[in-house]
Computed example of a mutant assay.
Amino acid sequence: MSDRPQLRVIVYDIADNRRRRKVAATLEKRAARVQESVFEARLSRAQLARLHQRLKAHLAEDDSLRIYTIPDAALPRCHVEGGPLLADGARYWLF
C-alpha cells in the first residue's frame, strides 16, 4: 500500500489561548490555514502521524482536534466559494 500524500483537513476547538496558539503555530509550519481554526495539507500517513504527535503534546482533555482525510477520488466532487485556495491550489466543496 502506497503512503503517498493525501489531502488532510485538520480542525480544532481549543478554549485556552496559550494552547490554541501552540497548536496553530505547529500547524502553520506544515499546513495552510483556510479558516481561523481549519487547516489543510497534503500529508502521507507517516507525515500525518508525526504531526499528530506534535499536536497532541499541546492538547488538554477538554480540547477537540479532528483530522479528516479527503481521498483523491472525492476531490472532483468538492468545491469552495471564497477564501484561500486549498493546499493543492484547487477549490473544493465537500458534500
Results as ranks from 00 to 15, higher is better:
Ala73Phe: 13
His52Asp: 14
Val38Arg: 01
Met1Ile: 07
Leu27Glu: 04
Ile14Lys: 01
Val34Thr: 07
Ala24Leu: 01
Ala73Arg: 15
Asp62His: 12
Glu28Arg: 05
Arg42Tyr: 14
Tyr68Leu: 07
Pro71Trp: 09
Leu27Val: 08
Ile14Gly: 02
Arg77Tyr: 05
Leu65Ser: 07
Gln53Val: 13
Ala41Leu: 09
Lys22Gly: 00
Asp88Arg: 09
Ser64Asn: 14
Asp63Gly: 02
Phe95Val: 14
Arg54Phe: 01
Pro84Val: 14
Trp93Gly: 12
Ala90Phe: 06
Ile10Cys: 02
Gly89Gln: 11
Leu94Asn: 06
Pro76Tyr: 01
Leu85Ala: 14
Lys22Met: 00
Arg8Ser: 05
Glu61Phe: 00
Cys78Arg: 15
Gly83Asp: 04
Leu85Ile: 09
Val11Ile: 10
Thr69Cys: 12
Glu36Leu: 15
Ile67Ala: 03
Glu36Lys: 14
Arg8Val: 08
Leu59Trp: 02
Asp63Phe: 01
Gly82Ser: 15
Gln47Asn: 11
Phe95Cys: 13
Gln35His: 12
Leu43His: 08
Arg4Gln: 14
Leu85Gln: 09
Ala90Gly: 10
Arg21Lys: 11
Arg20Ile: 00
Asp16Ser: 05
Asp3Phe: 00
Pro71Ile: 06
Arg20Pro: 01
Pro84His: 12
Arg18Leu: 04
Asp62Cys: 07
Ile67Tyr: 05
Ala32Met: 08
Ala73Cys: 12
Leu51His: 12
Arg91Thr: 13
Gly83Val: 05
Gln6Phe: 09
Gln35Arg: 10
Arg18His: 11
Gln35Cys: 07
Gly89Pro: 11
Tyr92Arg: 10
Ala15His: 13
Leu85Arg: 06
Tyr12Ile: 02
Asp63Asn: 05
Lys56Trp: 11
Asp3Arg: 00
Ala60Glu: 12
Lys29Pro: 00
Ile67Cys: 07
Thr69Asp: 08
Leu27Asn: 04
Leu27Met: 09
Leu43Ile: 10
Leu65Ile: 04
Lys22Trp: 00
Ile10Leu: 05
Arg8Gly: 02
Trp93Ser: 10
Arg91Leu: 15
Tyr12Val: 02
His52Thr: 14
Asp3Leu: 02
Ala57Arg: 09
Arg66Trp: 10
Ile70Met: 07
Arg33Pro: 09
Ser44Ile: 06
His79Gln: 15
Ile70Gly: 03
Leu85Asp: 15
Ser64Pro: 00
Ala31Cys: 10
Ala90Asp: 09
Arg20Trp: 00
Ala41His: 12
Ala25Thr: 01
Ile14Glu: 01
Asp3Trp: 00
Arg21Trp: 06
Ala49Tyr: 05
Ala87Pro: 00
His79Leu: 15
Val80Ala: 14
Ser37Glu: 07
Asn17Met: 04
Leu55Met: 11
Leu65Lys: 01
Pro5Ile: 03
Arg50Val: 15
Val38Thr: 07
His52Cys: 09
